[in-house]
Design a protein around this nucleic acid. Structure first.
Length: 580
RNA sequence: GGACCGUUAGCUCAGCUGGAUAGAGCGCUGCCCUCCGAAGGCAGAGGCCAGAGGUUCGAAUCCUCUACGGUCCGCCA
């Protein structure tokens, strides 16, 4: 149930009737007719721009249309008043029974309230994290992980069929480096003194891998040359790293549906197939690129390479897919991977990259556009840097000084819920401050706490009511006499709940889960506001002497908690029944 | 030289498909704690939405240019 959609449907049906009656000319496009909450609550509950949108094509004055429409709208029982305002807005005031109905509806549908069918079961692949399998995840990955995971849940809630996917970069030189690093740890496990030259990974996390390798193969690789052990150790090490990464993700509550190996692309001929597809479309050629203007690399020399004509699909320059020595560039398996996603039949693709990969957006979009013939949209979301603070002081990370902050560090210090919620309190493309102390602060300016506090207060009210012998299970509350819920402040809070289904659709359409976090903060604020008014005005308290009245008011409180739980569920955060 | 992202209150940031007098928290000023959880509450001040053009009934929102900040720019991953 989406109240705004319901009222919009009412507006459209009245407009159709006006056309029927000859008031409006036929054939008017009503796509741009909106019904939304007015910015200023004094204007009423909802506003429609119908008269303004239609005035020009109908050749009529906005106010003339608005007045006729207003009269018709008021015939509906849900509409108390419809007033023409400003340049031709129609402000609607809705009957209390509408808002009371929202509360009942929330309690009847539970945390599924707001679930949308806008996705129509279309399949969407969300690829995120996709960090190199060479070590534990760090804070930067954390933001991508949280964002991607919340987005996936959001789309699921909005009616899409979502696949969460991780692309393992296990085909390039970096996994060879990993293998050599593990080999050194392996030698170390055999009691040898080793040094870690530049170009190897010295991290402690490989010590255990070296020992595990020793346990598995004994000393057969000791003293052997690289060509003997490289492939085997590479597989072993990559496997170990992916287990580590999966555990990191699990600590944050992220679970992928599928891990896709870059290496598998080489074995299956997918790269060749993808490139053949582009070649058939006339988008592959041999050529020489211009050097980049302004900043010419010192060692630049023109070389003929195999190029993808990405400029045909919106890119700025064509991109090499094969190096001059005949091996693939990094871009080639990327193309093949997206080719595979297209072949799998997804209706839409979403990639989450770190902002430092912003330069790859156009070429990836070009590739998908070319591979799918423009039929599969690819949206790429960039997540900006996370700036760490400790007690207000910038917290510098340094691998060398050992102050390198991993995902695990963050989760262990502040918990997965706080981490996830806080990471979503900024738009994905804006930098984010993360202060280890402030995110745990229990005050109004910490959104995580403020939302949880609202949920905890409701739990507290439910407990008190139960102690007083008042039945407060959801079924009872939904069937309570909600007509008793008639104070303007209470109806305003119910109206806030009515915005939830609409917010879901907006957030899903724009692929912006942070909107959910902001909404929850807003809803929590409205709830606390009503609570505070109860301090001065006892009739606004949730617990009353008359059990019937209590039930009606508690129904409203419980409905807020249900929506908060639903929203937190999308963000992957556990609601807290009590705070200490 | 080019591409992408950003620029909204003193600070940190929201702002829906273009909609009415642009919002929140912090900070500031004033008042308030016997009260369902004061881990605070209420009220107020504070804005040329970076600048300039354009599109239209209407622009923080769309387009163009400029300024400032960030990220990136042939075979690396």
């Amino acid at each position: 149930m989406n109240l705004f959609a319901d009222i919009r449907a009412l507006v459209l049906s009245d407009l159709a009737a006006m056309t029927q009656a000859g008031v409006l000319p036929s054939g008017l496009a009503t796509d741009n007719v909106t019904v939304e909450p007015p910015r200023d609550a004094a204007h009423g509950d909802m506003a429609t721009n119908a008269a303004m949108v239609l005035a020009k094509p109908a050749g009529m004055k906005p106010r003339d249309i608005a007045e006729v429409l207003a009269a018709r709208l008021m015939e509906d029982a849900r509409v108390v008043s419809a007033e023409v305002a400003g340049p031709g807005f129609l402000n609607l005031k809705l009957a209390p029974v509408v808002w009371q109905g929202v509360v009942a509806s929330v309690l009847e549908t539970g945390t599924d309230y707001g679930r949308s069918t806008m996705g129509q079961g279309k399949t969407v692949n969300v690829e995120y994290v996709s960090a190199n399998p060479t070590g534990p995840l760090h804070v930067g990955h954390t933001r991508g992980a949280v964002f991607g995971d919340a987005l996936a849940s959001l789309l699921d809630f909005a009616g899409y069929e979502v696949t969460r996917e991780y692309y393992i970069n296990d085909g390039g030189a970096q996994v060879d480096v990993l293998a050599r690093s593990v080999y050194l740890r392996y030698l170390e496990a055999h009691g040898q003194e080793v040094a870690f030259p530049d170009g190897t990974y010295p991290g402690d996390y490989l010590i255990a891998v070296g020992e595990a390798l020793k346990a598995k193969v004994g000393d057969v690789y000791v003293g052997q040359s690289e060509d003997v052990w490289l492939e085997d150790i590479r597989d072993f090490a990559t496997d170990a790293m992916m287990k580590l990464i999966e555990a990191d993700l699990a600590s944050l509550g992220v679970k992928m549906d599928r891990f896709f190996s870059e290496k598998s692309l080489y074995d299956t001929g997918l790269i060749e197939a993808a490139l053949a597809d582009l070649r058939d479309k006339g988008l592959i050629y041999e050529g020489v690129l211009e050097p980049p203007k302004g900043k010419k690399p010192d060692d630049w020399e023109p070389r003929e390479q195999t190029l993808f004509r990405s400029t045909e699909h919106g890119d700025d320059v064509d991109r090499p897919v094969m190096k001059s020595d005949g091996s693939w560039t990094y871009f080639a398996p990327d193309i093949a991977y997206h080719y595979d996603k297209v072949q799998r039949g997804y209706d839409a693709l979403i990639d989450i990259f770190g902002a430092d990969h912003g330069g790859y957006v156009k070429r990836m979009k070009a590739a998908v556009s070319a591979l799918s013939g423009g039929t599969v949209p690819l949206d790429i979301k960039l997540t900006q840097l996370v700036k760490l603070f400790k007690n207000g002081e910038p917290f510098k990370m340094s691998k060398r000084a050992g102050t390198f902050v991993t995902l695990r560090d963050v989760v262990e210090q502040v918990g997965p819920g706080v981490t996830r919620f806080h990471m979503l309190t900024r738009k994905n493309d804006a930098p984010l401050d993360f202060d280890f102390d402030k995110v745990l602060e229990q005050s109004r300016d910490n959104p995580v706490f403020y939302v949880q506090y609202a949920f905890a207060r409701v739990t507290s009210v439910l407990n008190k009511a139960t102690e007083a012998g008042v039945a407060v299970d959801d079924a009872t509350l939904a069937a309570a006499n909600l007509n008793l819920l008639d104070h303007e402040a209470e109806l305003a809070l119910a109206a806030k709940l009515a915005e939830w289904p609409r917010l879901i659709e907006t957030a899903a359409r724009t692929n912006e889960p942070h909107r959910v976090a902001f909404y929850l903060y807003d809803l929590a604020g409205a709830f606390h506001g009503l609570w505070n008014r109860g301090n001065d005005l006892s009739e606004l308290r949730f617990l009353q002497d008359d059990p019937k009245v209590s039930q009606a008011k508690i129904a409203l409180a419980r409905a807020c908690a249900v929506v908060i739980a639903a929203g937190l569920g999308i963000l992957g955060v556990e609601p807290a029944k009590e705070l200490r």
